[in-house]
């Protein structure tokens, strides 16, 4: 798989980040993420992950959760205000960063987070 010119342009700023790069972007584009939980954060997470290049499947649920591939999972409770937005952004970032560290090294690892606490 290779990125075409439009994809290179689209993901260029993201690929500038050391932990992502070209290989990481290819991994993102070929990975399914499942997102479940209440709104609005389910839709927000889906929107941001899709924009990064992931394929996303959504389902309703009481507790918010994200599963990246088969082995990486984060579940948490998010408040509906700015704190919730911050925790969503930080939690997704950490999950993606840790996952990228594994997949770009050729492994797949296994990790399950519960609110990172």
């Amino acid at each position: 798989m290779e990125l075409d010119r439009n994809e290179m342009d689209q993901y260029s700023r993201q690929m500038l980040v050391d932990e992502i790069g070209y290989e990481g972007q290819l991994a993102i584009l070929s990975t399914l993420v499942r997102v479940w939980g209440p709104e609005p954060w389910r839709q927000w997470a889906s929107r941001y992950l899709t924009a990064m290049g992931f394929s996303v499947e959504e389902s309703p649920g009481e507790k918010f959760g994200v599963a990246l591939g088969d082995h990486w999972r984060w579940t948490t409770q998010l408040s509906s205000d700015g704190d919730g937005m911050r925790e969503l952004g930080l939690g997704l970032s950490r999950l993606i960063c840790d996952w990228l560290g594994q997949v770009t090294e050729g492994g797949h690892g296994t990790c399950e987070y519960d609110s990172f606490k």
């Binding site: 700023r13 980040v17 700015g82 919730g84 911050r86 969503l88 952004g89 997704l92 993606i96």
Partner: peptide, 24 residues
Amino acid sequence: RCFEAGVVGTVTLAVAGQALAVAK
């Protein structure tokens, strides 16, 4: 700047949430 060093979208989301939280 982000066009030189790159930036991750979910980090900018967290920053926006923190900005809302400090104002609140």
